[in-house]
Design a protein around this nucleic acid. Structure first.
Length: 422
DNA sequence: AGACGCAGGGAGCATTATAC
DNA sequence: GTATAATGCTCCCTGCGTCT
């Protein structure tokens, strides 16, 4: 039964009373221990528990979700001699045919798990590029990893020791540069206060970077990549875009072709820099050519209007497409790309997008960018179904590899009444 | 805090790859 | 020889790290 507006149920009133009692008790305990009781900039009260980066004098009785086996492994790792937190190398997250980067495994005193890959949303990486915050973004990703138990904050002094210490495996810069980066990312990636760095959530970071929606699936970024020179880090932040796109493509099929200008729109990385990053992060590019109908003077002229001067006449000498020596209209398409990272599970992506939707509905949506029409399909049946639904652009599906095996050939189904190119 | 050297990145031009 | 897209190279500027 619904209550009249403005009236609260007896259960809710009781719950509120209970909450007030708990808050008063907690405040009294904090005052007794001399701990701060007021909320600071991030809206939370500083925790009484120590920073995860400060070593515990002794480990608790049990580690790892009540698992005896996991506890044994964690204890063994704790007793083994190790420099700082890095005890070995392992390759996680990078595909096998990618560059062989040694990955330091981080086993924190507080965590039994050897997690060395970070979940990276390519849309957030693009936001970092857009606002030129990749260096600060790298710090955010590293701190999220170092905050292994998900507490949400780290001591500034410990952060400085870990990220600028000459012997630290997590060293990325000098203390002076770290100070600049912490100031640069303040309010976007973290909030500083109380001698601590309070990390902001993925949702809040996306909102601060004005990323209205996480459209691409997250990828696994090896933590060791984050300690490489900033150029390499940027290259992998960029490569995450291709890893995510290619990861959705069924095995054996080329990823949908995408022009460098379009990539630039999505990633905020200009074409010239895209090539540098692709070389650095081992993103593989393959060329694509489209085959239209049978060649004739009028058909070639029509194709030239629609596809520009990339159009040429392809003579099928081996009869791969049909009759031997049959002429076809062909033109070059943008490249397909394969990134070096594995896909990560969606996880909280739907929830994050819902939160972002709520945030951006308050006046930030409606930028006029409609959903792009799909142009590249995995097989001819899907392309034909799309065609029958009505399309305004030419649509393509894979026809196989070219003679030298380096280029992909695509079939083309021309959209009815396609406007001629200017 | 200032000076110096080095690395990274942007821009422009020339060259290469690939098809005919 | 044609074309486009990609790649390679160089120059210049900016930012960072180190030293004093």
């Amino acid at each position: 039964m619904a209550l009249p507006a403005g009236e609260l149920s007896a259960n809710l009133l009781a719950a509120q009373e209970r909450l007030a009692q708990l808050q008063a008790k907690s405040r009294a305990e904090r005052l007794a221990q001399g701990a701060p009781v007021d909320r600071i900039g991030h809206g939370r009260t500083p925790s009484l528990t120590p920073s995860p980066l400060q070593p515990l004098p002794s480990l608790p009785a049990h580690l790892g979700w009540d698992s005896a086996a996991v506890t044994a492994v964690a204890r063994q790792a704790d007793h083994a001699p190790k420099p700082q937190s890095c005890i070995g190398y392992r390759d996680i997250g990078i595909l096998e045919d990618s560059p062989n980067i040694p990955i330091p495994i981080f086993i924190s005193p507080y965590s039994h798990s050897a997690t060395n890959a970070i979940k990276l949303y390519p849309d957030i990486a693009a936001g970092m590029f857009q606002w030129e915050l990749t260096a600060a973004g790298r710090i955010w990703l590293l701190l999220r990893h170092l905050d292994c138990n998900g507490r949400g904050w780290l001591d500034v002094a410990e952060v400085r020791a870990q990220l600028t210490g000459k012997e630290s495996p997590w060293r990325v810069c000098g203390w002076r540069q770290l100070r600049n980066l912490l100031a640069e990312g303040d309010g976007v990636f973290w909030v500083r206060g109380d001698g601590r760095v309070w990390l902001r959530s993925t949702t809040n970071v996306a909102a601060a970077l004005q990323v209205p929606h996480l459209a691409l699936l997250p990828v696994a970024l090896p933590v060791s990549v984050l300690t490489l020179p900033i150029g390499q880090v940027r290259a992998h932040l960029y490569a995450a875009f291709h890893s995510s796109r290619a990861g959705k493509t069924p095995a054996g099929q080329p990823a949908a072709p995408i022009a460098r200008d379009t990539i630039a729109n999505h990633t905020n990385v200009i074409p010239r820099t895209q090539r540098r990053y692709e070389k650095a992060a081992r993103v593989h590019a393959s060329r694509n050519f489209a085959i239209g109908g049978k060649a004739s003077e009028s058909a070639l002229e029509e194709a030239a209007w629609q596809h520009g001067q990339a159009t040429f006449r392809l003579n099928d000498k081996k009869g791969i497409q049909g009759k031997t020596n049959q002429g076809y209209i062909a033109w070059q398409l943008p490249n397909s790309y394969t990134g070096p990272h594995r896909l990560q599970p969606k996880g909280q992506q739907k929830r994050i997008n819902q939160a972002l939707s709520d945030l951006f509905m308050q006046g930030m949506t409606g930028n006029g960018q409609g959903r792009m029409e799909k142009r590249f399909y995995g097989h001819g049946r899907a392309a034909a179904q799309a065609y029958n639904r009505g399309v305004t652009q030419d649509i393509y599906w894979p026809a196989g590899r070219g003679e030298n095996g380096r280029a992909h050939i695509w079939h083309c189904l021309a959209a009815p009444n396609t406007p001629a190119r200017k």
